[in-house]
Computed example of a mutant assay.
Amino acid sequence: MKLYFFILICMVFSCKNHTNSIKQSSCNDIYEIQYDKSKKYLLSKKEKDKNYFIIYIENNFNDKLKININKKIIFDKQVITNNQKPDDYSERIIYKMDGNDKNIMNLQSELNKACIEIPLDKKYRIIYLFYYQNKFIVRFSNQIRIN
């Protein structure tokens, strides 16, 4: 009985900083969603109350990317990331929300012929985009990027 209790406590208070889930996009591509639960370097309440998302394009993007939010193009250009230094990012996009209750991000990759469509969660104001092992990874966070 003590062993079960110990395992339960370990599961509840685990050190895992984010949760993952694998999804399939409307264009049949597999992608991963992560929700960062870390408490380090968080955006202040004042910053979270502002009406914007910050999108960082991270490692393994050597492609032409097109990003739409609510069918409005916010980014459309070639991205070359520095895969030798994963802490370097090549692009940062600041998107000011337009008052819609739902914000849907559509991401299309020209070279990899991949796409995803995902609702944005207003509880998380920072979005990190990765391309790893032939799939997109979208990490929602409130953790400020510290280089």
Rank of each mutant, 00 (worst) to 15 (best):
residue 2 K to S: 11
residue 3 L to M: 12
residue 5 F to H: 09
residue 10 C to K: 01
residue 11 M to W: 05
residue 11 M to I: 10
residue 12 V to P: 01
residue 14 S to W: 03
residue 18 H to C: 00
residue 19 T to K: 09
residue 19 T to L: 05
residue 19 T to A: 05
residue 23 K to S: 10
residue 23 K to Q: 15
residue 23 K to G: 01
residue 24 Q to I: 14
residue 24 Q to A: 06
residue 24 Q to L: 11
residue 27 C to A: 09
residue 27 C to S: 12
residue 28 N to C: 06
residue 29 D to Y: 04
residue 33 I to P: 01
residue 39 K to R: 13
residue 41 Y to R: 01
residue 43 L to R: 07
residue 43 L to F: 04
residue 44 S to L: 10
residue 45 K to L: 13
residue 46 K to H: 11
residue 47 E to C: 04
residue 49 D to W: 07
residue 49 D to C: 08
residue 50 K to T: 12
residue 50 K to Q: 13
residue 54 I to E: 07
residue 57 I to E: 01
residue 58 E to N: 04
residue 58 E to V: 00
residue 59 N to M: 07
residue 60 N to C: 07
residue 62 N to C: 06
residue 64 K to R: 14
residue 68 N to V: 06
residue 77 K to C: 02
residue 81 T to G: 03
residue 88 D to L: 00
residue 89 Y to Q: 02
residue 90 S to W: 02
residue 96 K to R: 15
residue 103 N to P: 12
residue 103 N to F: 13
residue 105 M to I: 08
residue 107 L to Y: 10
residue 110 E to T: 11
residue 111 L to Q: 14
residue 111 L to I: 13
residue 113 K to I: 05
residue 114 A to L: 06
residue 116 I to W: 05
residue 116 I to S: 04
residue 116 I to Q: 02
residue 116 I to F: 12
residue 117 E to H: 04
residue 118 I to G: 00
residue 121 D to Y: 09
residue 122 K to E: 08
residue 124 Y to W: 09
residue 125 R to I: 05
residue 127 I to F: 08
residue 135 K to M: 15
residue 136 F to N: 06
residue 136 F to C: 10
residue 136 F to E: 02
residue 144 I to M: 14
residue 146 I to H: 04
residue 147 N to D: 09
